[in-house]
């Protein structure tokens, strides 16, 4: 069983959604995570607040962000246990984040100390 990280890229929800819609999304996220946890495949996860975000660039240039041109940015992640990348992708497909057009969930295997990486 490998660990995979599901990285959510989406818009800042508070700019596009109504409070009711946000509550619905939150409930869906809880149900989605609960479903993964019920299979004992949930490792951990968290949201990444947009406020106070900084991007540190080359030569230590610090900017507020990541905003500007990019609408979809990293808003959170979940780490799951899965037998294969395909199983992890199936988990990702259930993420409520994907209801937003242009939003994505990136699925990456977390390197383990098995000598392969």
């Amino acid at each position: 069983m490998e660990q995979y990280i599901l990285i959510f890229r989406h818009q800042d929800g508070s700019k596009i959604a109504s409070p009711e819609q946000m509550q619905v999304w939150m409930k869906q996220t809880m149900d989605w995570i609960g479903g993964i946890a019920a299979q004992n495949k949930f490792v951990q996860g968290n949201g990444l607040p947009f406020d106070e975000a900084r991007v540190v660039g080359h030569q230590g240039v610090v900017t507020n962000g990541p905003f500007g041109d990019i609408k979809e940015t990293i808003g959170g992640y979940v780490i799951v246990r899965a037998a294969s990348i395909d199983e992890a992708v199936e988990f990702a497909k259930g993420s409520p984040v994907l209801q937003g057009e242009g939003n994505t969930v990136e699925v990456r295997r977390v390197a383990s100390r098995d000598g392969v990486h």
Partner: peptide, 17 residues
Amino acid sequence: EDIAGETFLAAMETWPY
């Protein structure tokens, strides 16, 4: 209005986890 909206966003980022 924005601050209220951001408050719910903070909840969305925290409560599910």
